[in-house]
Simulated scan of single mutants.
Amino acid sequence: MFDAPAAVATPEAVETFIARWKGTTGTEKANYQLFLSELCALLELPTPDPASKVWSAPCSPPAPTARKA
């Protein structure tokens, strides 16, 4: 099913990552982007693509509703 095993971070790298993030006191919203970037680097995964203005929802946007006079 799989061609090759995925790269695995060293135990030391994982412990360093956990220690860095374990004691954070910032809000989840404040830290999620940096956390995700560092997690991707640790796991040797590509980082997320930047957001775009292209409509990407699985369905069409809702139709405007008529105003009552």
Score class of each variant (00 low, 15 high):
52 S>G: 10
32 Y>A: 07
40 C>N: 15
38 E>L: 03
2 F>R: 10
58 P>H: 10
14 V>G: 01
23 G>A: 04
13 A>V: 05
13 A>P: 07
4 A>N: 07
29 K>E: 09
8 V>C: 08
18 I>N: 07
56 S>P: 00
56 S>V: 06
25 T>I: 04
31 N>P: 01
10 T>K: 05
57 A>Q: 12
31 N>W: 01
22 K>W: 03
44 E>H: 12
28 E>Y: 08
4 A>M: 03
48 P>Q: 08
56 S>R: 05
12 E>F: 04
36 L>C: 07
52 S>I: 05
38 E>Q: 14
3 D>T: 02
27 T>Q: 03
53 K>T: 13
2 F>L: 07
2 F>A: 10
10 T>R: 06
27 T>V: 02
6 A>K: 10
37 S>I: 04
46 P>M: 08
22 K>Q: 04
32 Y>I: 15
42 L>N: 14
38 E>K: 12
37 S>R: 04
56 S>C: 07
4 A>F: 02
60 S>R: 08
32 Y>E: 13
8 V>E: 07
54 V>Q: 05
6 A>E: 14
5 P>K: 02
25 T>C: 00
16 T>C: 14
4 A>C: 02
41 A>C: 01
11 P>C: 10
8 V>P: 00
36 L>N: 12
49 D>L: 10
59 C>M: 02
43 L>D: 11
46 P>H: 09
59 C>I: 09
60 S>C: 02
29 K>L: 10
47 T>A: 15
2 F>Y: 09
30 A>K: 13
13 A>C: 04
57 A>H: 03
11 P>M: 06
21 W>M: 06
58 P>A: 06
37 S>F: 11
40 C>Y: 12
39 L>R: 14
23 G>T: 09
55 W>K: 01
36 L>G: 10
12 E>Y: 01
50 P>F: 04
19 A>L: 02
45 L>S: 08
6 A>P: 04
43 L>V: 07
30 A>F: 10
44 E>F: 00
9 A>K: 03
54 V>D: 12
13 A>M: 02
28 E>L: 15
49 D>A: 14
53 K>E: 15
63 A>G: 01
44 E>L: 03
24 T>L: 10
20 R>K: 12
21 W>Q: 01
50 P>Y: 08
23 G>S: 04
55 W>S: 08
15 E>C: 07
32 Y>H: 13
8 V>G: 01
50 P>E: 14
52 S>A: 07
13 A>H: 05
27 T>C: 05
17 F>A: 11
31 N>I: 14
52 S>N: 12
14 V>K: 05
50 P>H: 10
